[in-house]
C-alpha cells in the first residue's frame, strides 16, 4: 500500500510509562499518504496515548516521533496546522454556540474568521445541523456534538486526521456520509488515523489495520493480509485470537449464572 514517498508519520522505539505502569513498549510504525489506518486494541492497550503523544498532548516519552518529516519534540508546533483531531471524550466548550466554537477553532488554526464562519456554516448544513448553528452546544445530543467535533477537525483541510471513535453517537445515515468522506479524503492523499472498538467498521473502511496489545504492535497489515496469515474469520475473531482472548463463552456463561443466582443469605 505504501507509496514511494516519505512517510507522513514515522514512529520509532516509542516507550511511555505513567507513574505506575508501562503504557507503550517500543512502538515502531510508519504511515504513508492516503492510508486509512484502523488503530485497534483492547481497553488500556495504549491507543489514545499514542495519538496524544503525536499531538503533543502527552510528554515525557522515550523514542522518536516524526510527523511530516520533522521531530515533534523540536518545539515547533506548526505541524499541528496540518492535523485534525477528534478526541475520545466529546470535549468542547459547550457553553459556546456551534458558530462561536467552530470559528474559534478555525482561528486557532490561523484561518480568517469570516472564512471559517462561511465554511463551518456550510459544513453544518451538509450534516443537517443548519438550525443548530447558533444554539449552545450544551443543548446538543451526543450525535450532534460528535458532528461538531468532526467539522472542527476538518475545517482547516488537514493532511492527517486523528480520530478517536469518530462515529460514536451518529445515526446510520450520518455514518454512511462520514465513511464516504473518509474514503474520498484518503483518495485525495490525506491520511486518516482511526481508532475504534467497532470491528465491523474498522474492517470495512481501513486500508491497513494496526493492532496493539499491552503497549506493543501485535499485527499490522490490510484485512486481507491479516486473514492470509492464517487468521480465519472476521476482524473480531482475529482481534480475539491475537489478544489471546478465548474465554468469552466461559465469562458469558458465568455472568448469566451469577445473574440468576438465588441469594443464599438474606
Amino acid at each position: 500500500m505504501g507509496l514511494a514517498d516519505d512517510p507522513v508519520i514515522a514512529i520509532s522505539g516509542l516507550w511511555m510509562n505513567y507513574t505506575d505502569r508501562m503504557v507503550l513498549r517500543g512502538i515502531d510504525l510508519k504511515v504513508y499518504k492516503g492510508q486509512i489506518i484502523g488503530y485497534i486494541g483492547p481497553n488500556g492497550a495504549g491507543k489514545s496515548t499514542t495519538v496524544k503523544i503525536m499531538l503533543g498532548l502527552v510528554e515525557g516519552y522515550n523514542g522518536k516521533v516524526e510527523i511530516f518529516g520533522r521531530d515533534i519534540a523540536d518545539g515547533d508546533v506548526s505541524y499541528k496546522k496540518r492535523i485534525g483531531y477528534v478526541p475520545e471524550v466529546a470535549e468542547l466548550y459547550d457553553s459556546l454556540t456551534a458558530r462561536e466554537y467552530l470559528t474559534f477553532v478555525g482561528e486557532l488554526y490561523g484561518m480568517k474568521r469570516s472564512d471559517v464562519d462561511y465554511k463551518a456554516g456550510k459544513l453544518m448544513d451538509l450534516l443537517g445541523l443548519e438550525k443548530a448553528y447558533d444554539s449552545r452546544i450544551a443543548t446538543f445530543s451526543k450525535g450532534m456534538k460528535q458532528k461538531v467535533l468532526l467539522i472542527s477537525s476538518m475545517l482547516h483541510d488537514p493532511d492527517i486526521l486523528f480520530l478517536d471513535e469518530p462515529l460514536s453517537g451518529l445515526d446510520a445515515n450520518s455514518v454512511m456520509v462520514v465513511k464516504e468522506i473518509f474514503a474520498s479524503l484518503a483518495a485525495r492523499g490525506k491520511t486518516i488515523f482511526y481508532s475504534s472498538h467497532i470491528m465491523d467498521v474498522v474492517e470495512k473502511i481501513s486500508s491497513r489495520i494496526v493492532l496493539i496489545d499491552g503497549g506493543d504492535i501485535v499485527a499490522d497489515g490490510s484485512f486481507a493480509e491479516l486473514q492470509e496469515k492464517g487468521r480465519e474469520g472476521s476482524l473480531e475473531d482475529i482481534f480475539n485470537q491475537l489478544t489471546g482472548f478465548d474465554k468469552y463463552r466461559d465469562i458469558a456463561g458465568e455472568f448469566v449464572a451469577v445473574m440468576q443466582e438465588v441469594p443464599s443469605h438474606d
Binding site: L55, L57, V77, Y85, P87, E91, L92, V105, L108
Partner: peptide
C-alpha cells in the same frame, strides 16, 4: 481540563 485537549492539539505555542 478541556483546555488541554481543545487548545493544545491546535498549532498554539506554549
Amino acid at each position: 481540563l478541556r483546555d488541554k485537549n481543545i487548545l493544545a492539539s491546535k498549532p498554539v505555542n506554549r
